Amino acid sequence: HHHHHGSGALAALHAEGPLAGLPVTRSDARVLIFNEWEERKKSDPWLRLDMSDKAIFRRYPHLR
């Protein structure tokens, strides 16, 4: 159930192989992290948004 927010940013994801479903670039990863943060913020208003490279690598090590 993907609803768009204002920016309408869509992340490019790997379609197949071992990385299927994972973001292709760091900016794609940022979109995913932001979208998930927006969702989680509803139940956790104090949740901090962390889109640093460090956060991205921790989450998606293949982007190193």
Score class of each variant (00 low, 15 high):
S27N: 13
T25M: 04
A9R: 14
A9T: 15
S7T: 13
K54T: 11
A15I: 11
L49W: 03
F34K: 08
L63C: 01
A12I: 12
G8S: 10
D44M: 06
S7H: 15
K41I: 12
G21N: 05
W37I: 02
L19I: 03
V24M: 11
H1F: 08
R59Y: 06
H1A: 13
E36V: 03
H4N: 08
E36F: 04
H3L: 10
D53Y: 07
S7N: 15
E36M: 05
H4G: 10
M51Q: 05
H4A: 11
W46D: 14
K54G: 10
Y60G: 00
K42S: 09
P61C: 03
A29W: 00
G6N: 12
R48G: 08
G21K: 03
H2S: 10
E38I: 15
G8Q: 10
L49V: 06
L47A: 15
L19H: 08
W46F: 15
A29S: 01
S27F: 15
L47I: 11
V24T: 04
H1T: 12
R58Q: 15
T25V: 02
M51D: 06
V31F: 07
F34S: 04
K42N: 08
F57I: 13
W46K: 14
G21Q: 09
T25R: 06
R59C: 06
M51E: 03
K42E: 08
M51I: 15
A15S: 14
L13W: 01
W37M: 02
A11S: 05
R26H: 08
I56A: 01
A11H: 05
L32H: 04
H2M: 12
S7E: 12
D53V: 08
S52Y: 02
K41R: 14
L49M: 05
A55W: 04
G21M: 04
L10N: 13
D53W: 09
S7G: 12
G21H: 04
A15E: 14
F57C: 09
G17W: 04
G8I: 10
D28W: 02
N35Q: 15
H62G: 08
F34M: 06
R26D: 06
L19M: 07
R48K: 15
A15C: 11
L13Q: 04
A15W: 08
R48L: 11
R48I: 14
L63W: 00
K54W: 07
D44Q: 07
D44L: 06
H14M: 03
G17P: 06
L47E: 08
Y60P: 00
E38L: 15
H14F: 08
S52K: 05
D53I: 10
P61R: 02
G8T: 11
F34W: 12
L10C: 11
G6A: 12
P18Y: 05
M51F: 08
A12N: 15
L19V: 03
S27R: 14
L10F: 09
N35P: 00
W46E: 14
F34N: 04
V31I: 15
R59P: 01
H2W: 11
V31N: 07
E16V: 10
D28Y: 02
W46C: 14
E16W: 08
L19T: 03
E16P: 04
R48C: 11
E16C: 15
H14C: 05
R59E: 08
I33T: 02
G6V: 14
R48N: 08
D44H: 07
D44T: 05
G6Y: 11
L47N: 06
N35A: 13
P61F: 04
N35M: 15
R59I: 10
A15M: 14
L13C: 07
L49S: 01
L63N: 00
M51T: 08
S7K: 14
E38Y: 14
V31T: 10
R30P: 00
S43W: 09
I33L: 11
P18T: 06
A15Q: 14
K41V: 14
L13R: 05
R26N: 09
H4Y: 08
E16K: 08
R64S: 10
S43K: 14
A29Q: 00
R58E: 15
L22R: 03
H4K: 10
G8V: 08
R48Q: 12
S52E: 02
W37V: 02
R64M: 12
K42I: 09
L63M: 03
G8D: 11
R26I: 15
A11Q: 04
P18R: 06
A9M: 10
E38G: 06
V31R: 12
R30G: 04
P45C: 07
A9Q: 13
A9V: 11
N35H: 13
A29K: 00
D50F: 03
L47K: 05
H62S: 02
K54M: 11
A20N: 07
A55C: 06
A11R: 03
E36A: 05
A20L: 09
A20W: 07
N35C: 12
H14Y: 12
P23Y: 00
A11P: 15
A20H: 11
S52R: 05
S7Q: 12
V24K: 09
Y60N: 01
S27Q: 15
L47Y: 14
T25S: 12
S27E: 14
E16T: 12
D44G: 04
D28L: 02
A9W: 12
F34Y: 14
L49H: 02
L19E: 03
P18Q: 06
E36R: 03
G17K: 08
H14R: 01
V31C: 12
H5L: 14
Y60I: 00
K41P: 06
L49P: 05
Y60S: 00
H2P: 10
E16F: 11
D28H: 03
L22E: 05
F57V: 12
E16N: 09
R59W: 05
F57W: 06
L10V: 15
S43F: 12
L13S: 04
L19D: 04
M51Y: 07
P61L: 01
K54V: 08
G17S: 03
D50Q: 04
I56D: 00
D44C: 07
A20G: 05
A12V: 12
R40Y: 07
F57S: 11
L47R: 06
H14T: 03
G17I: 02
L49D: 01
R26W: 08
T25N: 06
S52C: 04
N35V: 12
D53M: 09
R59D: 05
L10H: 14
Y60W: 15
L32P: 00
E39A: 11
E39I: 10
R30E: 08
P61A: 03
P61Y: 01
A55I: 08
I56N: 03
H5M: 14
I56V: 10
F57M: 11
A11E: 06
W46I: 08
R30Y: 08
R30W: 06
L49R: 02
E39T: 10
V31H: 11
K42C: 09
S7W: 10
F57R: 06
T25F: 04
A12T: 11
G6E: 14
G6L: 15
L13E: 04
H3C: 13
D28A: 06
L22S: 03
R30I: 11
L32G: 01
A29G: 03
H1M: 10
I56L: 08
R64G: 08
A29H: 00
P23Q: 02
P18M: 06
E38V: 15
S7M: 13
P45R: 08
T25P: 00
S43G: 10
L10M: 13
L22M: 07
F34H: 06
S43M: 13
D28T: 02
A29N: 00
L10P: 15
I33Y: 02
F34L: 07
V24N: 02
G21C: 06
R64P: 04
R40V: 06
I33N: 01
E39M: 10
G6I: 14
F57E: 15
R48E: 12
L63S: 00
A15G: 12
K42T: 08
H5C: 15
K41Y: 08
L49Q: 02
R26S: 08
E39D: 09
K42W: 07
R64F: 09
R26A: 12
D53L: 15
F34Q: 06
E16Q: 10
L49F: 05
H3M: 11
A29R: 00
K54Q: 12
H14I: 08
W37K: 01
R64W: 08
R64A: 12
P23L: 01
R48T: 13
R58F: 11
H62R: 01
S7Y: 12
H5F: 12
H2T: 11
L10I: 14
R64V: 09
L10R: 12
G17N: 10
H2C: 11
G21I: 02
G6S: 13
K41G: 05
A11M: 04
S43L: 15
H3E: 08
E16M: 07
A9I: 15
D28C: 05
V24I: 13
W46R: 13
P23I: 01
I33V: 06
A11Y: 06
L49G: 14
K42H: 09
G8P: 13
S52L: 01
G21E: 03
A11T: 05
G21W: 03
K41F: 07
H1G: 11
L22A: 03
